[in-house]
Design a protein around this nucleic acid. Structure first.
Lengths: 200, 200
DNA sequence: GTCTATAGGCAGATAGAC
DNA sequence: GTCTATCTGCCTATAGAC
């Protein structure tokens, strides 16, 4: 999700995080090793341990950076979109970008592996979902006010549906390598939420 | 998902599958080992290899059995529900049962690990999702005809939203150990699909 | 900061006895 | 069918030189 990482001018810790992030999003936290990252960076695993004491610490740094980057993207949407409907479309776009990169949402992936994760990582994963839900809830509340969105039930319920739909659509569409499956779900989701004509 | 497994009268292969299935649904295919299954069954890993040559073969057997059981549950819904809306509610109930057991959908879990899976398992995972999508599409088409369901866009698009929503809701709610998050998403989903008053 | 070398553990898997 | 014994490989991690 979110703005591109991978700048070749970054320092070693950032490059480690870039590589590890991609590996986790594609193979999972239990599906990559220090050796994988080291090989790609062309250093040894011992050097990796200098920057990140252990895999749990690396994992924690991964989520923290991802959450910050994601929060910034949500801030951008707040600033750049005029309507709640526009923000929601932008939010869907964040997930689309992840899929086009052949990845799963970092925290969606970690949610699958939740019960094998170090304790510290678990808390950070939950916090990520909570922050998303809260942002969506506020967008939905705005949308009800500016009449760009409509939904039955509470804003919180609708927020949870949006979050679940996009994580699930990413999960499935990525396996099929079929962006069409993502677009179908997203279209259907937005069709039920975005008001027909007036505002946008 | 689906009807309970775990009958203590079953033969060794079935008991292996029961234990492995639960472990995969909770910890993932890369998060459990032959040793875990062997310990729980109180046999050795060598005995396990007698019944299932290797982990890929065990994984394949796991998905196949799961898909058969799931297909039977869908057949039950077809037989026991009078309306498309009823079938859809029953479908949501299949996912709810998985969550109440503290598990993830087997194939949803494997979808997260997709890119680390043996080739044969991948195909079976995709087939599972295809079968679900097709069943949902036919239910939605029935629902449009008997007026128990309403949706904008095609039945296929709506089917993909339903599948993605429920897999995603399961993924997230299970991490929080909060059935409320699942119910919120499910309620919001069904509210948008089930027609107000008449049929059911 | 990065290296070589190595420890210690656990993984999946096999041979051969019973 | 299940066992003991064992192999090979990969994993995370550390000590100590440069």
């Amino acid at each position: 999700m979110v703005v591109a990482a991978d700048q070749k001018t970054a320092g070693t810790p950032a490059r480690i995080l870039d590589i590890a992030e991609r590996l986790v999003q594609i193979r999972g936290f239990n599906g990559f090793s220090y050796a994988d990252v080291a090989a790609e960076l062309q250093i040894t695993t011992a050097a990796l341990h200098y920057h990140f004491t252990g895999k749990p610490q690396l994992g924690l740094a991964l989520i923290d950076r991802y959450a910050v980057r994601f929060g910034a993207a949500l801030g951008d949407l707040d600033a750049r979109c005029d309507s709640a409907a526009g923000r929601l479309r932008g939010y869907v776009g964040l997930y689309r970008a992840v899929l086009l990169d052949g990845r799963m949402c970092l925290c969606g992936m970690l949610a699958a592996e939740y019960h094998t994760l170090p304790g510290g990582m678990r808390d950070s994963v939950l916090r990520f979902f909570d922050e998303n839900e809260q942002w969506l809830e506020s967008v939905l509340t705005q949308g009800a006010a500016d009449h760009s969105l409509r939904f039955s039930g509470s804003a919180r319920e609708a927020a949870r549906l949006i979050l679940a739909s996009l994580e699930g659509a990413l999960l499935i569409a990525r396996s099929f390598e079929d962006t069409g499956r993502f677009e179908s779900a997203a279209t259907s989701l937005l069709a039920g939420l975005i008001a027909p004509a007036p505002a946008d």
